[in-house]
Design a protein around this nucleic acid. Structure first.
Lengths: 163, 163
DNA sequence: TTTTATTTTTACGTTCACGTCAGTTTTCAC
DNA sequence: GTGAAAACTGACGTGAACGTAAAAATAAAA
């Protein structure tokens, strides 16, 4: 599988070349270190995945790129930790230190995410609650109607409304 | 309880006067209709609540003010519907129509919210999963340690890490 | 009734997250 | 090798969401 060019990558993750360059420019994406200026950027599948993840985080968290950057930096640090830990020759004290560090990073992310998630969940709950109420009122109305008139047609009430 | 001025309102909901004026300017908040130009804006507790809700939606959904505006317009429409429905003298056909309309609004909102909520929930899940793994590794490490040396101190592992 | 503190309007400034254009270069397809 | 397509680097442009400054008016406090 030959390396991808920026246009292909953009298509794959649903963005534009400009955005990718911009992310590189502000340090959100690592710039390929050995690329002579002027030469085309080439991307591996792995880098595509990384970018996809970045976009996902950005959309899900609705956070500024600067904040996202610190999050990703933490992410990188964890990757570094994993790499270090794979080597069996680190002494347990250092090992513990690394793990604790990683744990800290994760927990900071989790705090952010679960806070936002909780708010959204609450909102979702409220909405589906009012939906329930409206549906019940509709059912009641229909019940009273069918007592007066015979049902002219089967009316969709419980199904999902699509545009 | 005397009416609030814009500065008080801003403090109460955690924003600035400028933002409130801006929201009014773009039609996100209704402008008090009878205020002679130049006179201070006065707000009731109800309007404060409304603004609070707006901020909440904005933060939770991470949506543009324009989109938020359409959402709120739908919200207003629902309020209008509720007002109409409170009057008992509307005929059932019209009643049904109004309810269906409201249902449509709610469901469009819900679609947006639950989509975002689902994404965030997934993210949260993944994070707490990796946290679990890290914690397990820490426990394993400690277990092996306490087999070699006696425990020097009780190490906090399962508790929440605070900055 | 003066201060004093807020608010009002107007208008220009700013940051973020890219879009767009231009001129040049690189790479690909033939 | 020769176009044609895509990418490169600057640079300036843009819309959204406010910030900030200034001069005048209004409201609250003393």
């Amino acid at each position: 599988m030959r390396p991808l060019r920026i246009g292909d990558v953009a298509r794959l993750v649903g963005t534009t070349p400009r955005t990718i360059r911009y992310y590189e420019e502000i340090g959100l994406l690592p710039e390929a270190p050995a690329r002579p200026s002027g030469q085309h950027r080439l991307y591996t599948q792995e880098e595509v995945e990384r970018l996809r993840e970045v976009m996902r985080l950005k959309n899900a968290l609705g956070v500024t790129l600067e904040e996202l950057k610190t999050l990703l930096t933490a992410e990188e640090a964890r990757a570094e930790v994993r790499a270090q830990l794979r080597r069996e020759d680190v002494d347990p004290v250092r090992r513990r230190q690394l793990l604790m560090e990683a744990l800290g990073h994760i927990e900071r992310q989790l705090e952010l995410v679960s806070h936002r998630a909780a708010e959204l969940a609450k909102l979702e709950d409220e909405l589906s609650e009012t939906r329930k109420r409206v549906k019940r009122r509709l059912r009641e109305l229909d019940a009273r109607q069918s007592a007066t008139f015979p049902p002219e047609d089967t009316l969709e009430v419980t199904g999902e409304a699509r545009t």
